[in-house]
């Protein structure tokens, strides 16, 4: 029983990270029908920059805030410089290659400058585990689901209640129509990538104290976030959150009852099977293609 609670709690914690990353992919895809393929590096930048800023004597919270803002700016720059010029035609794939290339550059230059060893991201919430129903967990890990709830609610409010959010939905729904009511669709897309950057970097900062910051921490997490978004049906935010949490919990149970080695192999196989059964994703609608 204790083991089950343990897996459930840590699963929800890591699942929250996948869900946040998935939401980031959702935000980018909605606005641009393209994504930053190496979005995991934005996640990594959030954690790594926080550590670097703390090195020069800035406190945890301001460092984290600055790191998130810088990562968001980076995400926006990637949209402007590498996605937009390669996303002019429908079904273009150039943006995929350019963002992968930029991701490679980001990751390797971080390795060179930051070092290849993982570094501590000290947080007062990751010092002493607390006991919950027999399971041991850092408060920092509990922070993640809480943050996910806040992020999801905030995103929902943003999309439904603010003019900018409505404009973003308008761009997602029909770029031409958005332009005709006075919305600069390009600018909105840039903002969407920056917003996704905030989500990704925030996830990185929050999980950093648990997993340590390193240049390679983002690759797999980013990939899982993308797959979670695909499995959910990439155009459904709530689906993405549910799929992310489910995937996190599933992973922890596989890890617990089988092995860490089996975790990703089984996890990805499951995802491929799901995609086989639900080509449009678990919560996706059949897309209608005009002939």
């Amino acid at each position: 029983m204790e083991a089950v609670i343990q897996y459930l709690l840590t699963g929800l914690s890591v699942g929250s990270v996948y869900a946040m990353m998935g939401l980031g992919f959702y935000v980018m895809w909605s606005a641009a029908k393209a994504v930053n393929f190496t979005y995991g590096d934005i996640f990594m930048l959030g954690a790594v920059l926080t550590v670097v800023l703390m090195d020069i004597g800035i406190g945890l919270l301001p460092a984290a805030l600055l790191a998130i803002l810088a990562s968001a700016a980076g995400a926006a720059a990637i949209e402007r410089g590498f996605v937009r010029p390669f996303n002019r035609e429908a079904n273009a794939i150039g943006w995929m290659l350019t963002t992968i290339a930029v991701g490679t550059m980001l990751e390797s230059s971080t390795t060179a400058l930051f070092g290849s060893n993982p570094r501590m991201l000290p947080s007062p919430l990751a010092q002493e585990p607390i006991r919950l129903g027999g399971a041991g967990i850092y408060p920092q890990e509990l922070l993640l689901p809480a943050a996910l709830v806040v992020v999801t609610a905030a995103l929902e409010l943003f999309y439904r209640r603010t003019l900018l959010g409505r404009a973003m939905r308008a761009v997602a729904y029909n770029r031409t129509a958005a332009g005709l009511v006075g919305i600069d669709a390009d600018r909105i897309t840039l903002i969407a990538f920056a917003l996704a950057g905030v989500l990704g970097a925030l996830a990185g900062v929050l999980i950093g104290p648990v997993v340590q910051a390193s240049s390679t921490m983002g690759a797999i997490i980013g990939l899982k976030g993308f797959m979670v978004a695909i499995i959910a049906g990439i155009a459904n935010a709530r689906g993405v959150v549910i799929a992310g949490l489910l995937y996190g919990v599933t992973e922890k149970f596989i890890e617990g009852y089988l092995s860490t080695a089996a975790r990703d192999a089984i996890g990805f196989t499951l995802m491929v099977l799901l995609l086989l059964l639900f080509p449009q994703g678990l919560f996706g609608k059949k897309e209608f293609s005009k002939v």
């Binding site: 939905r169 308008a170 729904y173 031409t176 129509a177 005709l180």
Partner: peptide, 10 residues
């Protein structure tokens, strides 16, 4: 525009 293009989901 032709075809109205209202934002159907809002």
């Amino acid at each position: 525009p032709e075809g109205r293009m209202v934002f159907a989901d809002q």
